[in-house]
Design a protein around this nucleic acid. Structure first.
Lengths: 204, 204
DNA sequence: GTCTATAAATCGATAGAC
DNA sequence: GTCTATCGATTTATAGAC
């Protein structure tokens, strides 16, 4: 039995920690400086490793960024679900969701990274395929949630929940991208638009 | 009098033609391959010049891309104004605008370039400042137009025209960015969202 | 698995000839 | 003003030591 396993940390576990740490640091740097503005060397050094460690855990920059986006997407879904399953009525849930969006768009950078990485996809079929998969997953999850929440409230959406999901996700992405450029941009537009959308397109 | 002026083309005119041609070609390449995916050498050669000609007419890659975006923004404003000043009623004008958006988002790439360039802005104060100027101009122009068109129809928007402009521009940008990734994305979402927005938020 | 050293390629930008 | 040639800097990715 090795020293590692006596300590309770196997080699595989230590590598998993390295990978996790790299993703964590990469996330901060990608969000702060963008995809093109972040070199793998910066990531490695900031994480306390060298570039070799990056290439031992990821096939390259693209896969690292995809791993970063996965952690973000996971949190997004968790946050949205949490807001929409709050134990109140529909209005309360919408309030909770609006507050969550407001916070996310406040110091965003997520959408900025997402759309910059989408530009990379144009010259990388692998990135393109993986990103499309994830976006469709996000839209589907949002649509499901919208359906369930409105059904709970006894309402029905005039146009499909899928379209509503696309509209809200697009609005969030566009708003976040503009906001990352212009900090004075009014973020409350999202909540107001969403309310207007629901008001005009739901029926009992 | 030089040969040039006898031909009716002065040196300044020929340089203006070079500049125009460079912007034209750069626009195609930036839209097709993105900002990072397009080198100045490619642009120069595709336009029938060498890199030196690029640097004789622009301070660098950033200024060239800004010139490209200016031609696009100009066309955007023209198109939107044309749709909204069509000689019909409000519904007809909305139809015309929806059709215009549908066409623009059909083979988009504009929003993709815009948001990718916004990522560049994070490390270039000049780009950041110029882009913010232009976006505020676009929002202001849109808001003015919305105000005038609704006033024509005898309607009033519940939340300000400025917010409506931000919402529609953001939605278009986000939708275009997602669409440039996923060609199957349903673009009609824009028109439907806009109609829903107007329906719920206007009063006489 | 991680590090050091280096390869290999790209690209923005500049200098000097014409 | 444009072209040719080149510099200089960056960065992804790899090879080999430990």
């Amino acid at each position: 039995m090795s020293v590692d396993s006596e300590r309770g940390t196997t080699r595989a576990e230590r590598q998993a920690q390295t990978r996790e740490r790299l993703v964590e640091v990469a996330r901060e740097l990608f969000l702060a400086d963008g995809y093109a503005g972040t070199s793998l060397d910066k990531v490695a050094v900031a994480a306390g490793f060298s570039k070799g460690a990056v290439y031992s855990n990821f096939s390259g920059k693209e896969e690292l960024c995809m791993a970063v986006l996965d952690t973000i997407h996971e949190e997004q879904v968790e946050g949205v679900v949490a807001a929409f399953t709050a134990d109140t009525d529909l209005d309360g849930r919408i309030d909770a969701f609006a507050a969550w969006v407001r916070e996310k768009l406040g110091k965003p950078r997520w959408t900025a990274l997402e759309v910059e990485f989408a530009a990379v996809a144009r010259q990388s079929p692998w990135v393109a395929g993986e990103l499309v998969k994830r976006h469709r997953m996000l839209v589907a999850a949002s649509a499901d949630l919208i359906d369930r929440v409105l059904a709970d409230a006894g309402l029905r959406l005039d146009f499909g929940a899928h379209k509503a999901a696309v509209a809200l996700l697009s609005l969030g992405i566009g708003l976040g991208a503009m906001r990352s450029l212009d900090p004075e941009l009014d973020v409350d537009v999202f909540a107001e638009t969403m309310r207007a959308l629901l008001r005009s397109s739901t029926s009992a």
